[in-house]
């Protein structure tokens, strides 16, 4: 029996390899500041990709994703500066601590649905944020922790850039595999119809917790990469405003596509850098763009482009 099975598009695999090669070569030709911005885009992009696993694919109101980013970053910072751990151990501990936080918060949140899920997550996340903000001896309170000593390789922007590129590429690959795996398909089915999933034998809550833990792990990974780039942490890394900004990135790029959130992060970071040169009122521009998107492009840039492509190739059947 022959079944028309969806295959990963060769073209997009080729594009991914070409993009990766271009990114690897960029520091050779690009100015240092551009390398730094690109590194920031990759870190933020991984953060947005990880949110989208639970948001776009899981349909969960993950309102406080930045918490896991912050937990990853602070774990590394505290382990190295207060605990005297070797940096590599801190880099491993960050994502794991974030995953643990994801397990705890997720375990409570999946009992609730939609807006209540989101609100419980905000309260649990804000609790962590307040603790970080007030626990001066460990977290440095509202000053944060600066000049975190890291290995010499990471002292240069280019060194940090290559670490970030390697880890982000690897993480994005793993996330892509997960989205296409039985777990990923089941997660999307839960998003579409959780009740139906229960009645075909899927343990919905277990899958949702699993997705939150995985997303938290990769958010924590982005967090330690942020420290590698900036060598400092501060409480705003787990403030709710950042959580909503990641949301905006997913919307901007398109949360029903895999790479959309990365694109959204790139646009946001680039906008902030460019507009920030001329005015400190850049959040107003983000607000205006966001509102325009909601009115005219609710599927995001990538989502809208994809829809156009599909409309053009209508009749071919299936989806991309």
């Amino acid at each position: 029996m022959t079944v028309p099975v969806r295959r990963p598009a060769r073209a997009s695999a080729g594009a991914a390899v070409a993009l990766l090669a271009a990114l690897a070569l960029f520091p050779v030709v690009g100015p240092a500041f551009a390398v730094y911005v690109l590194a920031l885009i990759l870190v933020t992009g991984l953060l947005a990709l990880s949110l989208n696993l639970v948001l776009g694919y899981g349909g969960l109101y993950q309102f406080h994703h930045a918490v896991f980013y912050g937990v990853g970053a602070y774990t590394l910072a505290v382990a190295v500066t207060r605990g005297g751990w070797p940096a590599w151990l801190g880099f491993l501990a960050g994502p794991l601590a974030a995953a643990l936080a994801g397990l705890l918060i997720g375990w409570f949140c999946v009992r609730l649905t939609r807006l209540y899920f989101g609100m419980l997550q905000i309260s649990l996340g804000s609790l962590l944020w307040i603790v970080v903000l007030r626990w001066y001896p460990v977290t440095g309170g509202d000053n944060g922790i600066h000049d975190i000593p890291l290995p010499a390789v990471l002292q240069s922007v280019v060194g940090a850039y290559y670490l970030i590129l390697a880890v982000v590429a690897l993480s994005a690959g793993v996330l892509y595999l997960i989205v296409r795996s039985p777990f990923g398909i089941t997660l999307q089915a839960i998003r579409d119809n959780a009740q139906r999933c229960q009645t075909v034998g899927v343990d919905v809550r277990a899958h949702q917790i699993g997705a939150i833990v995985i997303a938290a792990f990769f958010a924590g990974t982005a967090g330690v990469l942020y420290v590698a780039l900036e060598r400092s942490v501060f409480p705003n890394l787990l403030f709710w405003v950042l959580s909503l900004e990641i949301f905006v990135m997913c919307l901007l790029g398109g949360w029903f596509t895999f790479a959309g959130p990365m694109l959204g992060a790139a646009l946001m970071v680039a906008l902030r850098t460019v507009i920030g040169r001329y005015t400190d009122l850049w959040t107003m521009f983000v607000g205006i763009i966001l509102i325009l998107l909601i009115f005219f492009m609710p599927e995001g840039v990538a989502g809208t482009a994809l829809a156009r492509l599909r409309a053009r190739g209508a009749g071919a059947g299936g989806r991309g």
Partner: peptide, 17 residues
């Protein structure tokens, strides 16, 4: 999705579905 759940392979993370 239903067949995978029945086979208890819904939690498989890395093999393409």
């Amino acid at each position: 999705v239903a067949v995978l759940a029945q086979r208890r392979t819904s939690a498989n993370l890395f093999r393409p579905a």
